[in-house]
Nucleic acid binder design. Structure first.
Lengths: 325, 325
DNA sequence: ACACGATATGTAAGCGGTTGCTGTATCACG
DNA sequence: CGTGATACAGCAACCGCTTACATATCGTGT
């Protein structure tokens, strides 16, 4: 319709400048009239680029992942990519199938590895696809990584609890024992406690799941012994569970016990008493992962990098008697 | 490596059965050894199928969208698809670009249209891509739709409030005036009130945003007049805001006022007092949309269908004096 | 023993773009 | 006016796969 070859059209669409303005105008006209859209598959076949980035999370439920996803989505769009989400497939076979599909179609993949997962990174390595790992530092395995500096925030939170609670009365109620974050938080907690003079902290560190139910269960199990304790929870939901169970026991934070959550999901500021918590910049984790991925795609031979995001205590009502209720 | 032509390989990979078992075995061996993965672009070029479904939401933040997305993701995987998410682009130009990218790569698109958006559906129509609309019934425009039956749940909730509050003291604190859901909820609320004998309900229906801040603002503006009222909020966050502001005023639900939220996000059962709310099956909205999309892809000439999902009142503490605190 | 149908595999033509190379005006310069 | 540089635009190969069609092989009924 524009009276030019497809080669010229291609040049007009992609490398503006290589073609005479007059011709380009004609082509643009034709494109508008015809409603022409380049076929993405054909483009991909030539360029091996889809402009789609994948993000694989263990789950996409709840404030935690929602926030992370939001950061990732925004950053992806900013960089001209689309985002393909994938919560990890339940069965191995499915994962195989799903994974391979995504691998071929995606320019790069950000995977959250909250727990060890040999299979996945072997597969990733073999697929030779740009990949960044979220939540585990696998730089030495050759992967870019985005991690959270759990230690700093945990230390802050623990120190904060220790201002009003004796070391012997502090507890860390964590998530799954295998979870990287929980491990790091537990370690930093223990260290802070020892520094404050605690002798044996082993039984003050417990593991469960990242759920309200687990927090509730633990606190209910403590019974009246809960009074006067300081609790650092593995995440905000656990903290909420603890507060609910405490309430059932006629105890409330911060007067009868101090509670600090983790993650600073929106939950923390929506409940009453508002929940002290360690802020994890979830959205930035997402955006940093996508950014790292895009950089790796542009520069495939760069040495693997790890970006570490800071955490910090946000003191609210649940841990601080001086704050107004 | 298997000593066969690419045609045979293709047949082995796709149409099992067309090739002799002995040959197929050789091919499978070779595939395993070589780590062969079919090129998705080339496949797409031939078949015009990517096995990727797009879902476009106004936002992907918060429990509401998180839950919806989860349902969609699960269903997509179940049906052998991947999910490309896209929160609507801020600028028109960006939307154009992003939209067109997705259009070419995606087998179908589910869009949430919470407010009128001529441009989008015109574009969709012109792109001739399978499309289902979430939250607006556009069957007469030729689109499959997934909607929520807001009326039933709203009526239930209003009736419930009316058991302990006079019609003249009931309020609907909604979201944006243009929002389809809010409109429907407001209409059903008004109807129920009139049926109960209210004469003028106009000033008892107010609009704002779907946020805690708006609920708080409204309730603060009411001041002591809040006492003894029944509030149906446009969503759970607004309800929370109302309860927070009430708390500031020294009032609390359910003794001083009754509050019912909407959506039944996890928030509702996590706060204290637990929040009565109208359950909207968010995950099912997502999965229904994906299912409808897949069906349309399989059967392109089918008449447009609308699936409507029921809502129902979940009575918890915030509206019911008889429930234990 | 022959024709014929069924079954198994190969051949090659695209799918719709991108891009290196080539051809041809156009222009400045000597 | 000849010559070479320059700027555009076209030609055609190719990306890796699917699939209609052609070919080869084998079994079977008569």
């Amino acid at each position: 319709m524009a009276g030019v070859s497809t080669a010229t059209v291609s040049r007009v669409v992609n490398n503006a400048g290589l073609v005479a303005p007059h011709t380009a105008a004609k082509v643009h006209d034709a494109i508008k009239h015809l409603g022409y859209r380049p076929n993405r598959f054909a483009q991909g076949l030539m360029t091996s680029k889809s402009h789609v980035l994948g993000i694989a999370l263990p789950d996409i439920h709840g404030e935690f992942y929602s926030e992370l996803l939001r950061g990732a989505d925004a950053e992806a769009r900013r960089l001209g990519y689309h985002l393909l989400v994938s919560s990890e497939a339940p069965t191995r076979a499915e994962q195989e199938r799903a994974g391979s599909l995504a691998f071929g179609l995606v320019d790069g993949l950000a995977v959250m590895l909250a727990e060890p997962n040999e299979a996945l990174w072997r597969e990733a390595k073999s697929a030779a696809i740009p990949l960044v790992v979220i939540d585990a530092d696998l730089r030495d395995k050759g992967f870019d990584s985005v991690v959270v500096d759990n230690a700093t925030g945990t230390r802050e939170a623990t120190t904060h609890l220790l201002t009003s609670v004796a070391p012997g009365r502090c507890y860390f109620v964590g998530g799954p024992k295998e979870n990287f974050d929980t491990q790091q938080r537990a370690a930093a907690f223990k260290e802070s406690l020892h520094k404050a003079g605690a002798t044996d902290s082993a039984e003050h560190i417990v593991h469960g799941t990242y759920s309200v139910a687990w927090g509730q269960q633990w606190a209910a199990g403590m019974g009246r012994r809960l009074k006067g304790t300081g609790v650092l929870a593995g995440n905000d939901e656990i903290a909420l569970g603890v507060m609910h169970a405490a309430h059932e026991l006629g105890l409330s934070a911060p007067s009868d016990l101090r509670v600090v959550g983790f993650d600073d999901t929106r939950l923390a500021s929506l409940v009453r008493p508002t929940l002290s918590t360690v802020r994890v910049p979830l959205a930035e984790v997402g955006s940093a992962a996508i950014r790292a991925l895009a950089e790796r795609i542009d520069e495939p031979d760069r040495a693997p990098r790890t970006v570490s995001l800071a955490t910090k205590l946000i003191a609210r009502q649940s841990s601080d008697v001086s704050k107004k209720q």
